[in-house]
Design a binder for these strands. Structure first.
Lengths: 138, 138
DNA sequence: GGCTTGACTTGGACAAAGTCCAGGATAGGA
DNA sequence: TCCTATCCTGGACTTTGTCCAAGTCAAGCC
């Protein structure tokens, strides 16, 4: 965790209380929070932190590659701190719960040149959808 | 195309000018439009059509399985009329252009039971990201 | 063709998620 | 300690989408 702060400092980040709090929130559990949830948790640690700052900080973490933006089909983007180990997502269509998964195989290799239309393909995102055990019970 | 209207009538749809226009817009080019773009094109054919109706109609088409909702990481959902042939998407990270693609392999089979966490998995969505030839030039 | 009726549409208000900005605060170097 | 570029704040604004009461109209029935 403080690795993260170190890395960021190394990249010229000015270390403010607000940024530290946002980083802590993300590193806390290994979860997939929305920006608003991050804000709510950050406020618990630093009451005056503003929404704008949370959005800015998340945006910076994403563009530095420290955090992934996940857009399931829910309304809000979610932020995934597990950026350094490639993985995909399994989403419950009912409650929106998200789990990280590691499928076998390499989807990148499954897209032949003839299907690339001249694009320079750099990334694949695989989202499995289904119903989680909890929702299946109900 | 009029197949679609036929199918919908068969399912008890009341055939209104508005619904016809929305269906025509989607069937026009084979594109991936946002709700607002659909609305804009619909207005060109039927000036009084309201946003609410476009949203309603798109929602109905989706739940009837005639149209797919695609959430790339862009802000707005897009609507894909190509619902009857399974396919995935290739998205330009710069301009947002979307192409339908047909990878080889079966990503569904690549998720072992041990990685399903008790979920009943019913669907996979694969999104390739990259840069399209147009944006690569610029 | 003319009624009837329940489904459809409308426009505007509302909500959620996110962006932008001017002005004030502060981290970190000199 | 002081300076200054960077960062934060709060609020206004935008975009995307939903909801609702009231009016309209497609389709079946005569």
């Amino acid at each position: 965790m403080s690795d993260l702060l170190e890395r960021l400092r190394g990249r010229g980040w000015r270390m403010t209380a607000q940024r530290r709090v946002v980083a802590e929130v993300l590193a806390g559990d290994h979860v997939h929070l929305t920006a608003d949830e991050v804000h709510a948790r950050a406020v618990a640690k630093l009451p005056e932190i503003s929404r704008a700052t949370v959005y800015n900080t998340l945006g910076e973490l994403v563009s530095l590659g420290e955090v992934l933006e996940v857009s399931t089909d829910k309304r809000a983007k979610r932020y995934d701190p597990n950026a350094h180990r490639p993985h995909h997502h399994l989403v419950c269509a009912q409650c929106g719960a998200i789990r990280d998964v590691h499928p076998t195989g390499n989807p990148m290799a499954d897209l032949p040149d003839s299907e690339r239309f001249g694009f320079t393909v750099s990334d694949v995102e695989v989202t499995y959808r289904g119903v989680c055990p909890n929702c299946a019970k109900a």
